[in-house]
């Protein structure tokens, strides 16, 4: 049985017998090579559920923030999660944003999510009208082109170095788990960046963040970014300017980064949501690497562990304290 059918069957069963009010998953999007969040409350709606390499949004986001009340109001929701998304669920459970009894976690094994902007680079910006994926290559067709691209060349940066493709915490698991990926170069892109001189790092940073248009798509798709009032939305006092002044823009991104330190699950939603294709993950992964090195912790992997920034252990590396 294919994974799609298994997913739909499980969803129908949960809606019929599991006391679940809705299943939050993905359905096919309105564009080729896209998916869209689906809130399925009936068996018929559950038949629109899909899971494939376009299902990039981290649906945990619908459990967080006051304005995202979809999964709240005493509803019990089933939610379909990839490995990274499950880590977001774990984090939000730890941070008391989700009640365990309100959620049924449906894990799916993930082979990586396609980054649309990388595909567009391959087609020279020509519009993709048909898309298929055989697990090894993707095929994209449009007016005047029909090309096969190895998946590895168009996967999101977050997926290339992914260690945990399976939902670590799930009530139901659909399909075959992929198992932990032993990748030696989990933080390769960060290490390459660290090796650059300070000037080169600054140039790269300036180049990336000067593209920002302050639309906050990165923040708004992030399940770890759920302050009731974000500091950029405060105006009394107002902490930062709202123009495209580079220092203000960078302050927004750096503060966001530090605020999700030890809380970012590196799902890559922010990077895929960015309309300007800013390589946002690099900084997130730099912070994740620091957290891993200092505290030996990966966010949301161990359901019993406290989040890194909420815990203190004797003997922790404290070389940042001036002695």
């Amino acid at each position: 049985m294919n994974i799609q059918q298994e997913l739909r069957d499980a969803a129908r069963k949960l809606l019929a017998e599991g006391g679940v009010d809705q299943i939050i998953g993905w359905s096919s999007g309105s564009l080729p090579m896209s998916s869209t969040p689906l809130f399925a409350a009936t068996k018929e709606e559950a038949d629109d559920l899909i899971f494939d390499a376009t299902c990039g949004s981290n649906l945990t986001v619908y459990f967080t923030k006051d304005r995202r009340q979809i999964a709240r109001d005493g509803k019990k929701s089933g939610v379909v999660v990839k490995g990274c998304d499950a880590r977001s669920i774990v984090l939000n459970l730890k941070e008391n944003q989700i009640k365990r009894d309100d959620v049924v976690i449906i894990g799916v094994p993930c082979d990586g999510i396609i980054d649309r902007s990388k595909v567009e680079d391959k087609t020279g910006g020509r519009e993709v009208l048909e898309f298929s994926d055989n697990g090894k290559n993707i095929s994209v067709k449009g007016r005047g082109f029909d090309i096969d691209i190895p998946r590895t060349e168009v996967l999101s940066d977050s997926c290339i170095s992914c260690v945990h493709p399976d939902a670590g915490m799930s009530d139901i698991f659909i399909g075959e788990p992929r198992g932990e990926q032993k990748t030696k170069d989990q933080y390769l892109s960060v290490e390459q960046f660290e090796e650059l001189s300070a000037e080169e790092r600054w140039e790269r940073t300036k180049q990336e963040y000067s593209k920002c248009i302050r639309c906050y798509a990165c923040r708004n798709v992030c399940p770890s970014c759920y302050c009731n009032e974000c500091f950029v939305d405060q105006n009394d006092p107002q902490w930062i300017g709202k123009t495209l002044d580079l220092s203000d823009t960078i302050i927004f991104h750096v503060i966001r980064n530090l605020h999700v330190a030890g809380r970012c699950v590196e799902c890559g939603s922010c990077e895929r949501a960015c309309p300007m294709d800013i390589r946002l993950l690099l900084l997130n992964r730099k912070v994740a690497k620091e957290v891993a090195e200092r505290f030996g912790m990966e966010t949301g992997v161990d359901p019993d562990a406290k989040p890194a920034m909420s815990d203190f252990r004797e003997g922790e590396k404290q070389d940042f304290i001036m002695g």
């Binding site: 639309c215 798509a217 949501a273």
Partner: peptide, 11 residues
Amino acid sequence: AKCVNCGACSF
């Protein structure tokens, strides 16, 4: 329901 209230569309 699915809108995350970012400004990508408006901008």
